[in-house]
Simulated assay, not measured.
Amino acid sequence: MSETLVTSVDTGRGLPDLLAPGLSVVFCGINPGVRAASTGHHFEGRGNRFWRVLHLAGFTPELIRPEDDRTILRYGCGLTTVVARATAQAAELSREEIEMAGATFRAKISHYAPHHVVFLGKMAISALSGSRDIQWGPQVDLFGGVRAWVVPNPSGLNRAFDLAALVTAYREVRTAVVSMP
């Protein structure tokens, strides 16, 4: 897959989307962390386990450093966020702010049409779907015409899931991606 960088509609944001049409999977964070937005690289935070989990789950053959985040496109994966505004913690976002970003986000997913969209945590998909009863794993309903998944957020602030539990959840997605015709 060729490296294609497509920035979000909001060109003033510090963290560009890494998207291309027809990717196997797009990982979706709720919003950028302050450090990620200031450096312009996804999952830059010191305690964030995303890159390690992604590698251990089999999405990448090597451990990607945050400053090399654009290389993820080589492996059929993309990165985006629902809300563009950076915060120290996602809890700083209101449900209304997430809901307001929903139409634009859903249109973005429909436009790029990945095979799977993977929400990192339940907060965003809960606000976007209007459902508080979100389960981990594959979702029954499509999101923007795409198969949707919910996996635990790899943020260092989320200590409810250790590294092994994160890798198991992400590996389930990887298995589905690989087995898809």
Rank of each mutant, 00 (worst) to 15 (best):
V6H: 12
V118M: 09
H111T: 14
T81H: 09
E172T: 13
F143M: 05
L73F: 06
A86Y: 05
S2G: 04
R35I: 04
A86C: 12
G22A: 13
G144S: 12
V6Y: 08
V26G: 01
E62W: 12
H41C: 12
G40H: 05
E62L: 09
G58K: 08
C77D: 03
L19H: 07
Q139M: 11
P66I: 06
V146L: 10
D17P: 03
A107D: 15
A57R: 05
R74T: 15
C28Y: 00
A37T: 00
K122Y: 04
G130M: 13
R70Y: 11
A176E: 09
I134D: 01
P114K: 09
F119A: 05
V25E: 01
G78L: 07
C77W: 05
I30W: 00
A164T: 07
G40R: 09
V118E: 06
L73N: 12
V82T: 09
Q135C: 08
F105T: 06
E92P: 02
V6W: 05
R147N: 10
V140Y: 13
S131Q: 13
S2P: 04
R85I: 05
P181I: 03
C77H: 05
R13L: 07
G22L: 07
I64Y: 01
H111F: 14
G33S: 14
L15Q: 03
I109S: 06
I30F: 02
A165S: 14
P138H: 10
R171V: 00
P32K: 04
T7M: 10
F143K: 00
I30A: 06
E67F: 09
Q135A: 14
G14I: 05
F50T: 02
R74W: 12
A127I: 11
W149E: 00
G12H: 11
H116T: 11
M123E: 03
L54C: 12
Y170W: 09
S8A: 12
G144T: 11
K122V: 03
P154T: 06
G121K: 01
D68R: 15
G130K: 09
V82Q: 08
H55V: 00
S155W: 00
C77R: 06
K108H: 11
L120Y: 01
S2F: 03
R106H: 14
L5N: 09
I109N: 06
Y170V: 04
G145A: 08
A176V: 01
A84I: 03
H42M: 08
T39L: 10
T4A: 08
P154Y: 07
N48P: 03
